[in-house]
């Protein structure tokens, strides 16, 4: 195995393209190093992207933010303006692992690892975040919900890597929230994760909503029916109940060591309701 530290996107793309699939991108490394140690992956070259400026910056852009794929959880937590605009997204990042993990782990890595249970992904989906990808044929943009195509599988082609995310601007009276269920208080992988983002008009009627759902299908889902249950309502308990039903209908989980089908389906609704109430409160206060 070789270790390479390119300083530009172009160099990184060349290295990955030359590796012909035998390359792995290193950002925070909190998933990759575990996979290397266990022998799950045996790359010819590891391409550390952290010297590429765009992967490490948070910049204001069109009322929203451009966030580098390798920005760490700890850095996101310290970015007050971003946290104010998208508290649910930042909370989701903060839930990844311990303080030690937060010192390294990134949203980009969390997405590219393509675990169905990744914490940031439902929150990013709810936020309508876009992925910026560099590759041999130039750059392209993709909504987060289209990035993963299955457990451990992404839309990235040979030579491509994820450079940054766009988190959009948002109208007044908007709020988002992310909740996950784990058996302990920390250090577990989500059994279920739900991100909710919504916007209200001046009368308190929901005019826009997006709901992301994790750990209950092969990839994190954008649940349009759940959002539809909220849009046009005052997000009253009846609307929330309808949203919960839509969430449970969207679940296609498996039984595994972390949860059962029945449990995941039931708890996804519970968390969706709770996350929705937090998002609503934030929208009302913003």
């Amino acid at each position: 195995m070789r270790y390479e530290v390119p300083e530009t996107k172009g160099e990184a793309v060349s290295l990955l393209a030359m590796a012909e699939g035998g390359g792995r991108v290193l950002a925070g490394g909190t998933d990759l190093l575990v996979q290397l140690r266990s022998g799950m992956v045996k790359p010819d070259v590891v391409v550390d992207i952290k010297k590429i400026v765009e992967t490490r910056e948070i910049t204001a852009e069109n009322g929203g933010f451009r966030v580098g794929a390798a920005v760490t959880g700890a850095e996101l937590d310290e970015h007050k303006a971003l946290k104010k605009l998208w508290p649910g997204v930042v909370e989701a990042v903060e839930l990844i692992g311990s303080t030690q993990i937060q010192g390294r782990a990134s949203m980009g890595g969390n997405l590219c690892n393509a675990s169905p249970a990744a914490d940031t992904v439902p929150a990013l989906i709810a936020a309508g975040a876009q992925c910026h990808i560099a590759g041999p044929d130039g750059e392209r943009t993709l909504p987060v919900e289209e990035f993963c195509t299955g457990p451990g599988v992404t839309n990235l082609q040979t030579g491509e890597f994820l450079v940054s995310f766009t988190l959009p601007s948002r109208p007044p009276h908007s709020g988002d929230a992310y909740l996950r269920f784990i058996p302990r208080t920390e250090m577990d992988i989500a059994v279920v994760g739900v991100g909710v983002s919504l916007s209200l008009d001046s009368n308190g009627i929901c005019v826009a909503a997006r709901v992301g759902l994790g750990a209950v299908a092969a990839t994190a889902l954008l649940v349009a029916e759940a959002a539809d249950a909220l849009i046009g309502t005052s997000v009253d308990e009846g609307a929330i109940e309808n949203m919960i039903s839509a969430i449970r209908s969207a679940c296609r989980p498996i039984d595994d060591k972390r949860g059962t089908i029945v449990y995941r389906t039931q708890v996804s609704g519970v968390l969706a309701g709770r996350a929705c109430r937090i998002a609503l409160q934030r929208a009302e206060q913003s």
Binding site: R184, T185, E186, M187, D188, K257
Partner: peptide, 23 residues
């Protein structure tokens, strides 16, 4: 946790959940 072949599915501190400080 064992799978159908008698293999341990949670041979690590991630899924063998000992109490952490915040628990």
């Amino acid at each position: 946790i064992y799978d159908e072949n008698g293999k341990v599915e949670n041979a690590g501190f991630l899924d063998y959940r000992v109490p952490v400080c915040s628990d």
